[in-house]
Design a protein around this nucleic acid. Structure first.
Length: 317
DNA sequence: CGCCAGGCTAGCG
DNA sequence: CGCTAGCATGGC
């Protein structure tokens, strides 16, 4: 196991690891001491988080895992390989938050959200896991979405051993496609069960969500809706949290009410129209759009993530 | 009990 | 096309 520390001075704009990994944008990391319910075991602030980067493909192959912990000096990591490179990529540590804030922030609400959660970052999640977890997310609370992913790993994943510690992998597409709908319903997935199974089958048969990375953002979002259980909102989550489209603004119930309260002129009947308007509103400089309705690349999705986390936290006390 | 949660789909007009 | 009832589950 290799170990190291990424100095805080090498993380432009800082990092709030807990906010980044527990704000509902990623369900691919687990605290090493996590129990079934996050609320029954609240984070203490210095927790280790871990994820499986790659599961062994054969008995002689070695799996890759990554653990990270926030410390005063910076981000501590442990990994089977170069954890600094992995952490930089998956936690987007090269995003300059100061620069992004300068480019986008345009009103008091946004300033307040940025001030409240300094160091909150977008994540770069694995496409298949992100696809499945956000299919599970529809009409569901953050804590329970996380619990569903833990259940899927427990039932259909495999153990990875690293120096005495065991990590459970998330199931592969073929494994998940072989599960029955009723089994998934018994795990509490509800009406999402057939969506998850059929989507896993599509991916197992070669239709990978990574394909959308090479498309223009509007095409990527539309293409992703071919998976059952994926509509425009879930597609936006996949675009933003795993495919690198920082201009994507997922419009969920929280953001929709925020739009109504703070940006009422952006409200439209159709998702696509509201999406375009709010992306221009939050994107800051350079809001030009072309004839196909594509808003120029921006960091509007970053602003969305700050607003979501801030508004949701405020309402919960 | 009713309402809500990082919504989507099938089936109507 | 656009519109909406129905869909599972658990917490408050």
């Amino acid at each position: 196991m290799e170990r190291g520390t990424i100095p805080a001075s090498d993380i432009p704009g800082g990092l709030d690891l807990q906010a980044t990994l527990e704000s509902g944008q990623s369900y691919c990391w687990r605290r090493t001491d996590e129990m079934m319910y996050a609320e029954a075991n609240p984070p203490t602030g210095g927790d280790w988080y871990q994820t499986v980067i790659r599961a062994a493909a054969s008995p002689t192959d070695q799996s890759e895992i990554l653990r990270v912990q926030q410390g005063a000096e910076g981000l501590h990591w442990e990994s089977t390989t170069d954890g600094a490179v992995l952490a930089r990529r998956f936690l987007r540590l090269d995003d300059d938050l100061h620069s992004i804030r300068r480019k986008t922030c345009s009103d008091d609400l946004q300033e307040t959200a940025w001030d409240a959660y300094r160091g909150l970052r977008l994540v770069d999640g694995p496409p298949f896991r992100t696809l499945v977890s956000f299919i599970c997310s529809s009409q569901m609370r953050v804590e329970r979405i996380h619990e569903m992913q833990i259940s899927l790993a427990r039932e259909y994943g495999v153990d990875v051993e690293t120096e005495g510690q065991t990590i459970r992998t998330f199931p592969t597409p073929p494994r998940l496609s072989a599960v029955t709908e009723s089994e998934l319903r018994e795990l509490g997935l509800g009406y999402r069960a057939p969506y998850v199974r059929e989507t896993a089958e599509m991916v197992a048969n070669g239709t990978s969500p990574k394909t959308a990375m090479d498309m223009a953002y509007p095409d990527a979002r539309e293409w992703l809706t071919q998976y059952p259980g994926v509509g425009p909102k879930v597609a936006d989550c996949i675009c933003l949290f795993s495919l690198g489209f920082t201009q994507a603004v997922p419009i969920d119930t929280w953001i929709r009410s925020a739009i109504a309260d703070h940006y009422p002129s952006c409200t439209h009947d159709k998702y696509a129209a509201t999406s375009r308007a709010i992306r221009e509103q939050l994107g800051g400089d350079n809001p030009a759009s072309d004839s196909s309705g594509n808003v120029a690349d921006s960091y509007a999705g970053y602003v969305q993530t700050y607003l979501f986390h801030y508004l949701r936290s405020r309402s919960r006390g």
